[in-house]
Amino acid sequence: MASVFADFRRVLDVRGRTLQAIRRFFADRNFLEVETPVRIPAPALEPHIDAEPSGDRFLRTSPELHMKRLLAQGLDRIFQMGPCFRRNERGRLHRPEFALLEWYRRGADYLDMLVDAKALIGFVFETVLGRTAIVYNGTPIEVMPVWERRTVEEMFRAHAGWNPLTSCDDARFSLDLVEKVEPALPRDRPAVLKDYPIRAAALARCRPGPPPAAERWELYIGGLELAGAFSELTDHAEQRARFEACARARAAAGRAVYPLDEAFLSALEQGLPPCGGAALGVDRLVMLLAGCSDIGEARPGAD
């Protein structure tokens, strides 16, 4: 009993110091901490993310649209940490309620956000643990060597035998990503997967082809998908078209269809400056720092 309590307290201590370190990192870099609504009328339309209804509204699946509205109003460096909700997501790395960090930077693209992410990870590990080497699930990991970047195209060609940038079969993409590509990423250091099929990045800017790709990366540490970022899409007509296509696809698949966030779309129309945005799973970061193999252990006191 005593040791269970000791562990409960130890994880809470790591978690608390992680939150403090994240706040200090952004405060030191002149990012403004913002709070946007948790109950919202129009969650972002994504092909595979379902929102939890809450009365006549929905619990946010991410704070993305509201934070971009703040950028459109003239803020240039903002971050937010708080709970987000995704319906029916429960597994060793998933909970229907989880803590998400998002930050946005005016004038940045997705690779600038990767520089931020690396500085943040290094700072948090040094502040919380006093070192950047850990052993996670039995594997020694150094988190601050050169972060290898691999494109989705090269990894899929090498390990799954096809190129999702030229012919994207949505369901097969996720299956091969989980079964073939992610296991081939290095485990003893961070790995970055970048340049995604456009269908897999509803809110990202595309770089011209051939073949065109969405400017998006995902960061993996110790087999955990820890963070992701976009060069944000700022073209309102393109964004509306993608939301509408997604709404049709969701309806066809029998999934709930959410109203378009017209306030967000008109903010884009007024002018969202070029910017980068990144999201990081705080619970998963705590898993690495406290040595938890199930995300539930990183959320003491939660269900």
Binding site: I49, G91, R92, H94, A171, S174, E225
Partner: peptide, 30 residues
């Protein structure tokens, strides 16, 4: 296990044991 790559589709990964032969394998479902 339930897994879901960021923005991707849900995948259900199973370790399986053949009840007749005892042989094991893994399989992922969409």
């Amino acid at each position: 296990n339930f897994v879901k790559p960021g923005k991707g589709a849900a995948i259900y990964t199973c370790k399986l044991k053949n009840l007749a032969t005892g042989a094991t394998m893994t399989r992922a479902y969409r």
